[in-house]
Amino acid sequence: MYAFDFEKPTSLNEAVTALQTEEAMPLGGGQTLIPSLKQRLAAPSKLVSLRGVDEIRGICRDDAGRICIGGGTTHAEVAAGVPEYPALAALAANIGDPAVRNRGTIGGSLANNDPSACYPAAALASGATIVTNTREIAADDYFEGMFMTALEEGEIITEVRFPVPEKAHYEKFEQPASRFALVGVFVAKFADGVRVAVTGASEEGVFRWSEAEAALASDFTPEAVQGLSVPAEGMIGDLHGSPEYRAHLVGVMTRRAVAAAG
């Protein structure tokens, strides 16, 4: 690791100010950033730990019935704290391992936007709103490709607001060494339609499978998407699986997710 300065502010305002330094980076739970620093894939001048900023931790509900999760809330806290949205709780409960879930945060995961991370699929399929210190961003406008998001330099995710679907399920085909999704599919059925978000598969990062959404809107059964497939072109190919394999898994995971959502 290269050397860097370290700050641990206790308010959002202090954190925003601390991040105005050139090459400063926010530190959430550090479960991805610290390994990246060790590999010298990141070399910030300063890390600003958000762990002491209590105002961006915790879970509440807004007047619209949405679950509002502070950006600094850990995966373990989400797993235990959203009983009315079991698919989201189960997703959080299956990220990494227990020790990772005690440190890693939802804001950190969404800001990093790893193409194989679980939370991007939940946010996109739920039609969540990502709230920062300066604005609100719809999930549809937030994810901009592998490790790319709409966040500006120094912008901090303060809250993520999840509408609660009528039915939902996240089906993850786990890569056992990394515990990331080889392919993960989150389906969410709302009164006005179905949203299907796929992670782990595309070179562009998380995406909505609109063909499946249309089919499921009129018939929310695994059979409705039986004949559908995504093209292998643009899918990730690596030692764990070819693009064709991942494209195949998208269909399988979608059908399983729909079946499990009931």
Binding site: F6, K8, G30, Q31, I34, P35, L47, S49, R51, A76, P98, A99, V100, N102, R103
Partner: peptide, 19 residues
């Protein structure tokens, strides 16, 4: 490297001392 920090298991290789 698992230790308990404020009662929760964490990986001490993936947390800074200053945290």
């Amino acid at each position: 490297c698992v230790v308990h920090v404020d009662g929760r298991a964490v990986k001490a290789c993936t947390m800074f001392a200053l945290e």
